[in-house]
Nucleic acid binder design. Structure first.
Lengths: 221, 221
DNA sequence: GTGCTCATGTAAGGCGTTACATGATTAT
DNA sequence: ATAATCATGTAACGCCTTACATGAGCAC
């Protein structure tokens, strides 16, 4: 409990802000609780950090004076450390929410990566992967829809509900896009027949032309 | 030239595989070239690593015997190091493509994170962020569509084309989802009027109920 | 009493970024 | 001549994960 360095407020990573935001209703939470909250909602659109990271982040936030902590013995109870946001923390996280531009979303879609390098595996393998992805999307869709319904029961969760509804639609779309890709693969297979289309040829030498074709034309940042 | 450790093949990270896959058409590429390829297609669905990381990855791949390199003087030319995949590398990346299950896609959507913590900022601020996101999605949509058209001109890019078409649809959907969210926010505002709905209340104490409401019901992994 | 979940961490290391440095070529 | 781009890196650091360790309560 000490630093209060105002410069640090600006340089926290999004994960730290997320944890601080979870603590922003002025309620005491343990690291375990924080993890549960991320699992409940945030994981659908912003992954979910590991326990070890959450504990480390909480310590960091405490050193910055944005949260305080105390040990809990009353409760049951195993030993657990409870964290609570400070006035400085509340002010910092509010400034973050109001004054910081959002970073561009970042996506690492392994399935699409496989598709892009489909010549290494062939369309059948890709369709297997896509089928699995469809099931994954359906699973997430179901869970997000359920959690969104839970969020309807409490007024204070209104924004979480909106985010979870977005997630429902997102995973529904993810499902459709995968199904569409499977169709596209079928069509491509038919078009190429068993001649040297996608999947059979070693697909050599394409970068020659990339420079000329790509660089000039599009791309206004 | 050296290690050839077969165990290592299984434990490379997706980024390494992506770079190796880029080199899989047996063509000599510099680190700079690799970066350009990622910028051309992969960035739409799997971000784009920094130069420094690409150079580091290439060195690592070389130490593993999956690529070889030589200096290029002929070409123009500044000094540049050209990398080429080895037989071992080709075999390893093919095995990766065929035998490794795809990891679940990972998304870090800062805009949705803001929505989920909307009580810290209010609906007007959120709508600004969403409007910016709409423009971002439109920009990506335009670029992906352009690059997909470029990919149509070369047979060997068939899979890249499919991936880029997917990206077009993805960013179109991203746009729609953001617009829908803006509508939802408007409706929520109207419903709550200027009474203590989203945006005004400090939204206290919600985690009490999370344990009871959430844990039991849904969630089959 | 055995195993499961709750709960809190430490240690090691890989992934990935930012910042910096350098020099050569190309464009103006 | 000057600036911009091409091209290749190094250094430092922060983010994040995996693996491991520990102990306490609870279910059977």
């Amino acid at each position: 409990m000490a630093d209060e360095d105002p410069a640090a407020k600006a340089t926290l990573a999004a994960t730290s802000w997320a944890i601080l935001a979870i603590l922003s209703p002025e309620r005491e939470l343990s690291g375990y609780d924080v993890k549960k909250v991320t699992e409940w909602s945030i994981r659908y659109f912003y992954w979910s950090p590991q326990f070890s990271q959450i504990y480390a982040e909480l310590k960091k936030l405490e050193k910055l004076g944005l949260v305080t902590s105390r040990m809990d013995h009353d409760n049951g109870a195993r030993n657990r450390r409870l964290y609570k946001i400070t006035a400085a923390g509340l002010e910092a996280v509010t400034r973050w929410a109001n004054d910081t531009p959002a970073e561009p979303p970042m996506l690492k879609h392994s399935v699409l990566l496989r598709v892009a390098f489909g010549n290494l595996a062939g369309p059948e393998k890709l369709k297997d992967l896509l089928q699995e992805h469809v099931e994954f999307a359906e699973d997430m869709l179901r869970q997000a829809t359920h959690d969104a319904q839970v969020a309807e029961t409490v007024d204070a969760w209104a924004y979480s509900r909106l985010a979870l509804q977005w997630a429902s639609r997102y995973y529904a779309s993810e499902r459709e896009l995968a199904l569409q890709m499977m169709k596209d693969l079928d069509e491509a297979e038919e078009a190429f027949g068993r001649s040297g289309g996608p999947g059979s040829a070693p697909a050599p030498r394409y970068w020659d032309e990339i420079g000329e074709k790509v660089n000039v034309e599009g791309k206004q940042a």
